[in-house]
Design a binder for these strands. Sequence first.
DNA 1: GTTAAGGCCATACC
DNA 2: ACCGGTATGGCCTTAAC
Length: 829
Amino acid sequence: MKFDFIPIDYGYFDFEGKNYAKITGRNSQGKRICVIDSCPVYFWAILNDKLEEKKINALIEKIKKICLDVKGRKTKVEGVELHDKKFLGCRVKALKIFATNYKDLHDIADCLGMKEIEKRRGYDLGFITHYVIEKKFLPLHWYEISGEVLHNSVEFGGIDSSLNVDFCIKAESIKKTDDKKFLPKVLAFDIETDEFRIGEGEILMVSLVSENFKKLITWKTSSSSGTRLDYVEYVKNEKELIERFIECVKEISPDFLVGYFSDGFDLPYLKARADKHKVKFSLGLDGSQPRFSGAGAGRGIGTGKISGIVHIDLLRFIQTAYSQYMQSETMSLNEVAKEFLGDAKKDFEMKHSSKILAGEWENYFEYNLHDSVLTYNLFQKFWPDINEFSRTIQEPPFETSRAGLSRYTESYILHNLEKFNEIPEKRPTNDEIGQRRRIGSSEGAFVMEPTPGMYENIAMFDFTSMHTSIIITHNLSKSTLLEKKEKGCNESPEIAEGKKKIRYYFSKETGFFPELMKEIFYLRKKAKEEYSKNKNTFTKARSNAFKVLSASAHGYLAFFGARYYSHEASASVLAFVRKYNKETIEKVKEGGYNVIFGDTDSVGFTLNNKTKKDVRQLLEKLNSELPGVMELELEDFYKRGIWVTTRAGITGAKKKYAMIDEDGNIKIRGFETVRRDWCSMARKVQNNVLMMILKEGNEKSALEYVKEIIQKVKDKKLEIKDIIIRTQIKKPLSEYKAISPHVIAAKKMKERNLPIDPGSLVEYYIARTREKKKLVREKVKLPDEKGEYDVDYYLRHQILPAVENIFQVFEIDTDELIDRKKQKKLSDF
DNA sequence: GTTAAGGCCATACC
DNA sequence: ACCGGTATGGCCTTAAC
């Protein structure tokens, strides 16, 4: 039988000691198909240099005889081949050692302690990754499959009869075909409970949303007088709720089951409650329960994998792939939905189910259903991105949606090594990671200290993908690093290592890492052009995928968990970053401009009496002097900009400025306005002050405005939303050495049984207290705690600090704006 | 008991 | 541990008086 097929979910199983990949996907008619396939399982033994042929043959014979009985599984070396390969760019002779089961590779590798063998590699990729590389059966691409349909077959222990799919097939051939449109079947879900701690409360309701499908299952009956909502299905109890949920998932049979924070909440909660009721939580297409891994006793959340269905926790994906480009200050469903959908959660005042009145349940149902609607719509929004990332790094969507930036880069490398005939490097051991961390980090980028003041007519240059273009241009990587200088090699600038100043040298022959980064660099350029020509969600997703991948190249080199980590290459990249930035600053100065700003890859300067044309000519000249793929871009022209001093006083503050472009758009960097751990009134005031000053070119109206606000604060006219301070909890509360206000707020929340975990955002305000308190933390109150805000605190610690450095540029002392005597009286009271 | 320096901590920039 | 280094600034902690 022959059919077209798109692989979506990858799993594997063992049968008679061998590994089989189990790939679930669809054909173009929408039939659900499971493909079973196998691949050779092997790893590499890299041989010592100059080993004689005779000795190699003897070694091969010896290895062929290896037979193991481990973990109740008999395994043996199935074959050994000699190959000419490359490892870290060097030619090597290597043995390809085949085994029965992937899980045994490590044990077999452990038997190869012979002195003839230098290194053992390629046993730690994971079977799925190994399989995808081996068979080039890539996720979310279209294929033509032919093979034998399994129908109540005894093969593989009768696996086909237990699988809830249209066909199960043993693959004979897999051929890549042209891409077709694919619309995945998606089911979003969300639960509501009384208790945040996993499994400790009852699940009150669960909502499910799919295409033209909305359902809410609950055992909480509403009053007979209440409006009956047509999507609500009433069941007897929580046990039935879970059973119905499982049935619904089976009926809809989605490719993707999507939640928001469902790795950390919804899925483990459902599983825990199912366990309590002794209900088998059989969501998998083979009837298996979700497998949770990585959670453990430690910190962080695990992942919930469902066999045959891709469980996506959208929060995790958005966090890694998008959060750095987002406006939202939190990753809550509400804010993320607002930003990407223009839709928000329904209003509902959360309370314990025992306190919900009969007529209120409908609102709760609406609220819960709408969360699933938002999750469903967000998935549709991000599907192009997940799709594009998954195809680019060639890892299945389950893994892709949970991977971090380093894994994106690493997967891209591993899946492209064969082009270079390269044997994969291994993951670092804990010892190696320890060593890498002990070496510490290298000196980073250069940041110029600006002279505080207001400037007019500003232009800004920046380097395109600076770090990545340096890696490519100077061929920097682990495998191209030379032990000593060679003729014509690439040479880093001088680097201070300890007390010495040294240089690192890199080969002139392009290494696979720089080559792959070059590929990404050009694909990024292409994708960006494509997007600007043809703007749609798919071109945007593609452009973003390569943008993220390209931006992670240097971070990967310097990441101690990376297979291709290189301290030397990273230090060299950063040395070049400093060199190019400083050189550019000098050259712009030489061109007759006044440089006022410089940070890592950008330079800002005033035009003085020069024209925009002059600036463009200068840019052209600078570009003609840059080597390789390095390129300087004109970021923009600005009408006006302001730089301030640090709080301490005289020196200019780095990474803190505001500019206005010719269309009146304001760009603010580093100021409290953009920091979420300042109260919104301080941020608003600062933002308005910057706007007025930049638009008008002077401080007069801004000063009047600040005076008004100060009066408003004194008159206690601020609302609670103006004074709330939001801060994130970054570690378990017990680990805090310094107990700052936000830790107190978190402790108060914990006392109320509210969930506080690393990552939680706490809200509080600073209240006036009866006795005089010395520490701010003694005045912390949660937003719903009664109290008056501390006028003195909000003036002196929020509003004034936000604006005083700005007015200092105009030599105005804002301290005088507060009548000290009057204030003293107030706080004494 | 008060004060200054130093450290912790969160958050931003690139 | 899950991409890096540079930088600001608030507030607590500690040491010294």
